[in-house]
Design a binder for these strands. Structure first.
Length: 472
RNA sequence: GGCGCUGUACCCAAGCGGUCUAAGGGGAAGGUCUGCAAAACCUUUAUUCGUCGGUUCGAAUCCGACCGGCGCCUCCA
């Protein structure tokens, strides 16, 4: 039984989807005005882990992530770079897909764009206007928060308190400082769409209400995003959608913690950020994902190179095991060999109960490390293990470490390269082993050290010498 | 000012009333194996969970106070 912490109720709740086999899930995607940073990546990755775990459990997941491709920041960027807003959005949309793929994040079923849904958005606003939740002031349309009595239910804020402590800019046009724009009137030179209120563009919050409704229906299971979206973004989405449909918008609200640098939130405005793209130049997706998985998704996550290094180091344990079980040297026929009393089921059970508990990935990772240690022990202790043992090990890692967490890549062969390169390395290994036989260790060590310099590590074992390429 | 989160070893980090003399990763130290390495395995590294009280047969876990840190309340994952 999966339980999930629901921001709306501030409790862990048993997860029960609307339809028994299907989960409908919406995750707030990027505003494509720049490369996304590694803090954004945390949300994308943890949402990916949640999605993959739901699939692991047998649900058919319908996963939608929006792309905000028209907004103030995009317009600002287009002015700075003197190119059309549309081209800014296109450039960073492409970058988004490139980066997300490198991070081994599975594609969403649909990536709806705001600019492709202007009609739906306009219709949505009209509906709100008809129901008196919206008012038009000279081409700007605002949502009237005072009309929505549940306003504040997600963030736990009370309207009066919000008003008292309001730090929002005073906008003469708004009835209430907390009212927010549904439709923004276009200024001179800005991109615009025609609407009943004149030329303009959608506000930010409305696109999610319109697009999630279109792709997932009026009520759906999961809506996820970063902590900072709770207020006002998600609060406003609820206000819009529930005012329009009179139905519950979302059953489970899930929010991810921030990524901290020196105990401070990483953000564009503070300037203390790294783009995911830059981090990926030095670290693998697996390292990043392991680091993220070792902290619970709701808490803050401390981020720096040392931590990335340590997770990269930890990954070696998985890689070495994969290497050990992958091209099993002497594949035994089924049923032969000494069967170790190794209880794979108990590791699946432990992995699942960790994940079932509000996605306790740190605990799940601990189970995987225990598994690796125990498998290594079994291999070291028993001589002839049946081939099923090796395939069971691979299957376990494939389903959990790779399939859900994305911290290993079984397909990635360690010793790749051109065949000539391979043969050259084999040749040198042969020479070195000749030298070793003659106890010419000076020569054998020289060969090993120099290969090492080239990024090729040798390992001697009873079965012979193997090598792997390491990143320099 | 309002709301919320948080303080566990050298670092990161689980744990949410008994199974905790507290997982897991990194680091450090010692050992087994090895010609030497590497990998792997074993052992050690918090009798203690910010501080002080309280509740309880029993608390890292609940309550209170205090001392730190962080976030949201404005665009933000």
């Amino acid at each position: 039984m999966l339980s999930i912490y629901n921001t709306l109720t501030r409790k862990k709740e048993e997860f029960i989807p609307i339809s028994p086999d299907e989960v409908r899930m919406y995750v707030c995607g990027p505003t494509v005005y720049d490369y996304f940073h590694i803090g954004n990546a945390r949300s994308f990755i943890m949402a990916d882990v949640l999605r993959k775990y739901l699939e692991y459990k047998g649900y058919n997941v319908k996963y939608i992530m929006n792309l905000t491709d028209i907004d103030d920041r995009i317009i600002k960027k287009s002015i700075e770079e003197k190119i059309e807003a549309k081209l800014v959005a296109e450039k960073y949309t492409k970058a988004f897909f490139d980066d997300i793929e490198k991070l081994k994040v599975k594609q969403a079923d649909v990536y709806p764009k705001a600019t492709d849904h202007v009609q739906e958005i306009v219709d949505f606003i009209k509906q709100l206007e008809e129901k008196s939740f919206a008012y038009n002031v000279d081409g700007n349309v605002f949502y009237d928060v005072s009309k929505f009595h549940d306003y504040g239910k997600l963030s736990g804020k009370k309207l009066v308190e919000l008003e008292a402590g309001a730090r929002v800019d005073v906008n003469e046009e708004k009835k209430n400082p907390l009212d927010f724009a549904l439709w923004k009137k276009a200024k001179e030179g800005e991109p615009f769409w025609e609407s009943p209120w004149g030329k303009g563009r959608p506000g930010w919050h409305i696109e999610c209400s319109a697009m999630s409704g279109k792709h997932l229906g009026e009520t759906f299971d999961i809506h996820a995003g970063g902590n900072d979206l709770i207020f006002p973004h998600h609060e406003n989405e609820i206000a819009q959608s529930e005012a329009a449909t009179k139905k519950k918008f979302v059953n489970y609200w899930i929010h991810f913690g921030f990524l901290n640098i020196n105990n401070e939130k990483m953000s564009k405005s503070l300037g203390n950020f790294f783009t995911a793209r830059d981090i990926l130049k030095h670290y693998s997706a697996e390292s990043i994902r392991l680091l993220f998985s070792q902290t619970h998704y709701r808490g803050p996550l401390e981020f720096n190179d040392e931590l990335l290094d340590s997770s990269q180091k930890g990954l070696e344990k998985f890689k070495n095991l994969v290497e050990k079980v992958s091209p099993h040297p002497v594949p035994l026929p089924k049923g032969e060999g000494v069967s170790p009393d190794f209880d794979f089921q108990s590791y699946y059970k432990d992995f699942e109960s960790a994940m079932d508990d509000d996605l306790n990935t740190p605990q799940a990772v601990a189970v995987l490390f225990d598994f690796v240690r125990d498998v290594n022990k079994a291999i070291a202790e028993k001589e002839n293990l049946p081939s099923e043992f090796y395939s069971n090990v691979k299957e376990f890692l494939s389903k959990t470490a790779q399939g859900v967490l994305g911290i290993v890549d079984l397909e990635k062969s360690e010793a790749q390269g051109s065949s000539v390169e391979k043969e050259l390395i084999e040749l040198l290994i042969g020479l070195r082993n000749g030298a070793r036989k003659e106890k010419n260790f000076a020569l054998s060590d020289k060969i090993r050290n120099e290969l090492n310099e080239l990024g090729i590590e040798l390992k001697d074992s009873k079965e012979g010498t193997t090598y792997k390429k390491v990143k320099k």
